[in-house]
Every structure is written in C-alpha cells, then in structure tokens.
Computed example of a mutant assay.
Amino acid sequence: MSATTFIRCMCVAAGGAWIACGLAGGQVCVLDTRTGQPRAHWRAHDGEVLRLAAVDNNRLLSSGLDQVTALWRVDDGELIAHLKGTTEPVHCLSVYYNELISGTTNNRIGVHTSMDQEASFSSTKLRSDTFKGVLTCMSVLPLNRLLLLGSDNGTISLLC
C-alpha cells in the first residue's frame, strides 16, 4: 500500500476482529484490530472504492466507481460473488440479514434478495415529491425494516 493512497471508506466487522479500508486506487485492505497488521490486501475495483459493509466476521461487501458491487472473503480477498443489477455506482450499502439494500446518487434504492450470484434484484427511484435532494447516506432500522435516508441538503427521511 502506497503512502500516497487515499482512504475513501472504512468499516468494522461486527465482532470487532478486523477493520477494512477502501482505497482511492480500487484496493481493499483488511487490518487485524488486535495487532494492527494487514490480514489481506487486494484490488477490488477498477475505479475507487465508494463503500464497504461488513456482512459478518468472514465476508465484506464493496462497491466501486466501476459500477460493481462485490462480496469478498476477508481472510484472503477471494471473490465470492458479483452482485448484478445496478447500472450506476452504488455509494450507500446496508445489510439486513442476508439481503443487501443499496442506494445511488441518482436516488435509486435497490434490493438484492440474497448475497450470491443468483440473487434477484429490484430497484425503485425515490420520487422527488417525497425525497428532496440527493441521497448521501442510508441505514436500515432493524426492528421495523424502515429506511432512514439522508440527503445532501440536510434532510433526514424515514421511508416505509
């Protein structure tokens, strides 16, 4: 890893055993939190890494400027699956059980029904009369499966 490489995003495993960093050059680096030493380092995307999300203690999701969303094994960086469906860069990722909810700057919310190659994908565009601005962040509220959405103009919305 070069000293001039910019970190674009980070995530922490649920158990706290590792931290993943997404780099501007398209690489992902996984660090052991106990030792600070790298566990794995690999090229994940042709463009910069936009977002990372820990699925569990062994798997990591990444999205990149190259319009690819992928699932990786954290121990060795081996590709598990490319999640097909999105036709634009994904900059919001949220995991709910075995589903992936994604969001784009075009205000499109997508859902992958599972974390594998055969997952079905559906998406919907947020209506401008119900969501003002550009989607910048998103989180699934686990108790009721509602989406909490943030926009570039400071608006926070709850989507049913």
Rank of each mutant, 00 (worst) to 15 (best):
C21R: 15
N57W: 09
L135G: 12
L83M: 08
G15C: 10
E99S: 08
Y97G: 00
A20N: 07
T5R: 00
A3P: 04
F121G: 00
L52P: 14
T136S: 13
L65D: 10
R39V: 09
S114F: 04
C21N: 10
L60M: 04
L100Q: 05
V28F: 03
C29W: 05
L100G: 06
W18L: 00
G154Y: 09
A44F: 04
F6P: 03
T33K: 12
S139H: 07
N57K: 08
V95F: 04
D66P: 12
D76T: 08
L61G: 05
R127L: 05
Q67G: 01
V68I: 01
A13W: 06
G154P: 15
G103W: 01
G133C: 11
I7R: 04
G26W: 08
L100S: 03
A53L: 06
E48T: 09
H112C: 09
G110N: 11
L158D: 00
L158Y: 12
M138R: 01
C160E: 13
H112D: 10
T104I: 02
L83H: 07
T33E: 04
L65C: 04
E99Q: 15
T69F: 13
G133Y: 13
G133W: 10
T86Y: 13
E88W: 11
N153Y: 14
R127S: 15
G16R: 10
D46Q: 15
G22P: 10
V74P: 09
T5E: 09
T35H: 14
V74I: 13
L83R: 06
S139P: 00
L147I: 01
L50V: 06
I101P: 02
L146S: 07
D56E: 08
T130C: 08
I156A: 12
L135H: 14
L100K: 02
L146R: 12
S128L: 06
L31T: 13
L100H: 05
C21F: 10
M10E: 05
S151M: 00
L158V: 15
V12D: 07
V49F: 08
G110M: 04
L159K: 11
V55N: 10
T86M: 01
E88P: 06
T130F: 15
A14N: 14
S62P: 12
C11L: 01
P142G: 03
L143N: 08
E78D: 11
D76R: 15
S139R: 07
A70G: 07
G22E: 02
T86Q: 12
G103C: 03
H45L: 01
N57S: 13
A3F: 13
G85R: 11
K132P: 00
A54G: 12
L71W: 12
G25M: 01
N98G: 02
T5G: 07
D32R: 14
V49N: 07
N144Q: 07
N57C: 04
Q27A: 12
S63M: 04
R127G: 06
V111A: 09
E88L: 03
S114W: 14
L141E: 08
L126A: 07
V90C: 05
D116R: 09
V95N: 02
V134S: 05
G16P: 09
G150Y: 14
L148K: 02
V134D: 02
L126K: 08
L31C: 05
A20H: 13
